[in-house]
């Protein structure tokens, strides 16, 4: 993945030079260690600003809607799945996109790395599968594979599913007998324990809506929590209102979520809101054999009716 950045820059430069696209959307180096920031590149001399590494945890499909001109976007496996979802849901047109696909070896779990240190991290670098992390008190050399985000560890679509060009060699995909062990763990609990699990999960939520806003499929012009006439949900810190937000947001993602992990990446309180969405992903998979964002020709399961749809929940 470290060498693909040269290819990304080269391709971006060419696209801008030949006026194939008006801008390139990618990641730029952040101002603090382990941070990158989505950026739009319009001038050839700025191509050098582009970076791609294990800290590019947000989903750039979130930045490609409402564009006038043709644009290029740097997209890892999950980003491309959300691009597919956007195309299926008529949010972007395929011909107005130039997709620079990046086969991905996973993004790092920043909170997990931070938790190894008592003080702030002042330096971060990576070399292949090795991470070098330094604070003012100590330095750690880590294996990236031990510090992957939870969603990346269970990812089965590391390679872009749709692209115009690849910025690196395809990587080997993982296959799991059970892709949803985390959901099973919660399913095995009784009602009370489940309830307690989700109460604990969201207890520090500050309703900043970073999870929703980082999510490429949360693009409603007005979210149900922001609707004021009628108002569907209270706006305070009451835990019922907080959980209603999380529950309904997750449900709105049913059959659409690609488990890209941008929601968790964005959360300042480190809440694994995927505990909600993963259940729906598992159900979509088991009931409809569906994984979101793999095929621009297929409508998502909740969009279509089929006589074979499971209906044993209806009495």
């Amino acid at each position: 993945m470290d060498t693909c950045i040269n290819k990304i820059r080269e391709l971006s430069l060419k696209l801008l030079e030949e006026n194939e696209v008006k801008k390139v959307i990618g990641f730029a180096e952040g101002t603090i260690p382990m941070a990158t920031s989505p950026v739009t590149i319009t001038r050839k001399q700025d191509v050098e600003k582009l970076v791609f590494n294990s800290t590019c945890g947000l989903n750039l499909a979130n930045y490609i809607r409402n564009q006038k001109d043709k644009i290029a976007v740097i997209a890892k496996g999950c980003d491309t799945r959300n691009i597919v979802t956007h195309i299926v849901e008529n949010q972007v047109q395929r011909e107005k996109l130039y997709i620079i696909g990046v086969p991905c070896n996973g993004m790092i779990d920043k909170s997990k790395i931070e938790s190894l240190f008592e003080d702030e991290i002042i330096e971060f670098s990576e070399d292949g599968g090795k991470l070098n992390v330094k604070s003012s008190l100590k330095e750690e050399k880590l294996n990236k594979s031990d510090y992957l985000r939870k969603n990346c560890r269970l990812c089965m679509h590391k390679n872009p599913v749709i692209y115009d060009v690849l910025a690196g060699d395809l990587v080997e995909e993982q296959n799991f007998d059970n892709p949803y062990p985390d959901v099973d763990e919660i399913e095995a609990m009784n009602s009370e324990t489940k309830w307690q699990h989700f109460e604990d999960l969201t207890k520090n939520c500050i309703r900043c809506y970073a999870c929703r806003n980082a999510c490429p499929i949360c693009y409603c012009p007005t979210c149900f929590v922001d609707e004021s006439g009628p108002q569907w949900v209270g706006k305070g810190q009451d835990k019922t209102d907080v959980n209603t937000f999380h529950f309904l947001r997750a449900f709105h993602c049913a059959g659409r979520c690609t488990d890209c992990g941008a929601c968790v990446e964005a959360c300042p309180m480190d809440i694994n809101v995927r505990d909600f969405t993963r259940k729906l992903n598992k159900d979509s998979f088991e009931m409809f054999g569906w994984e979101a964002g793999l095929d621009i020709a297929r409508r998502p399961p909740l969009d279509v009716y089929s006589p074979n749809d499971p209906d044993d929940f209806i009495k």
């Binding site: 919660i186 309830w195 699990h197 959980n243 159900d283 929940f313």
Partner: peptide
């Protein structure tokens, strides 16, 4: 939706779906 409610800890028998 029933499944997600149940997943969150709402008892299975509390939410019912029927077509009448």
């Amino acid at each position: 939706m029933g499944n997600l409610l149940e997943h969150m800890g709402i008892e299975k028998d509390r939410v019912h779906f029927s077509w009448i």
